[in-house]
Design a protein around this nucleic acid. Structure first.
Lengths: 148, 148
DNA sequence: CTTGGGATTGCAAACAGACCACATATGGCA
DNA sequence: TGCCATATGTGGTCTGTTTGCAATCCCAAG
């Protein structure tokens, strides 16, 4: 059903922890990262493919609608620019390039992500504390071999 | 405006990374943890206070309405039980106790949180990779000294 | 003519978040 | 005595975001 990560069998988790599919606000930094990792401009469709390979989506493609929407919103806020390729052969494609601002934004996201991580980590350790068990080591989250 | 964590000045982050206030799905495990950490049953009002001290909310109280609603939903799904205290003096209070199922659920959440963490960590390292900078060490997230 | 890459819009269900109003109870202050 | 702040619990509404689905369009290859 959802895909962030699945340390246990599907069934066991479904019982209880209702995780969101996408950690719900991480699509944007994922797209930023995909773009930053690429030498050339990419068009939306390719971004969807690449994003699918990211840890966030763990192999299953995110809904293209959402990606296009995010991309548009990113353009209006200046994180990316786009231009149309209208090759003689093939459909028109819109290619997106990261702006300097976009790169800056991603740099900031690195800190934000660290905060997310530490908040979650603190909650996690508080939880195992409260249960009186020792903090289990981070399980190796499989289900997706990440190559962004 | 929001409070998860603020490594930089407010302004700088607001520009770009739109973090949600609550990482949006972590209220439930927070409540579970608060309850698990307490020897006696707690009533809603106290849970709100204690949750406010958790890393998630970083000092600012979550909306009480939401907490009560979550609590109710948790009861119908068997994670907590409640009973009314109607002391001679003082208003009636509803006290919540974690069930075995609730404790089990929290245990599962510990794994889920680990996954969140590792997904975010991977994204973070992919991002700094893509930017060609080295992974900055986790900044110390202040703004709240956590004592759940 | 169907399939598939590529982009976009609209809609609707779902949910989160912030309020507000209400119902009690206690204790303190003027 | 009357008013108010602080506890406590609950219901309702309003607004906004998420998000997935369906439908549309273009073009090319088979």
């Amino acid at each position: 059903m959802w895909s962030v990560c699945n340390p246990k069998a599907d069934g066991e988790l479904k019982e209880c922890a209702q995780l969101g599919r996408t950690l719900s606000r991480l699509t944007l930094p994922t797209i930023l990262t995909v773009l930053a990792a690429s030498a050339e401009p990419l068009h939306g469709y390719v971004i969807v493919q690449k994003a699918a390979a990211s840890p966030l989506f763990g192999g299953s493609k995110p809904d293209a609608t959402g990606v296009y929407r995010t991309l548009k919103q990113m353009e209006t806020s200046g994180l990316v620019t786009s231009h149309w390729n209208t090759p003689k052969a093939g459909p028109a494609k819109r290619s997106f390039t990261l702006t300097t601002e976009g790169r800056e934004c991603l740099r900031r996201w690195i800190d934000s992500l660290a905060c997310y991580c530490s908040v979650i980590g603190e909650l996690r350790s508080a939880a195992s504390d409260a249960l009186g068990i020792e903090l289990p080591p981070l399980p190796h989250c499989d289900g997706h071999e990440h190559t962004l």
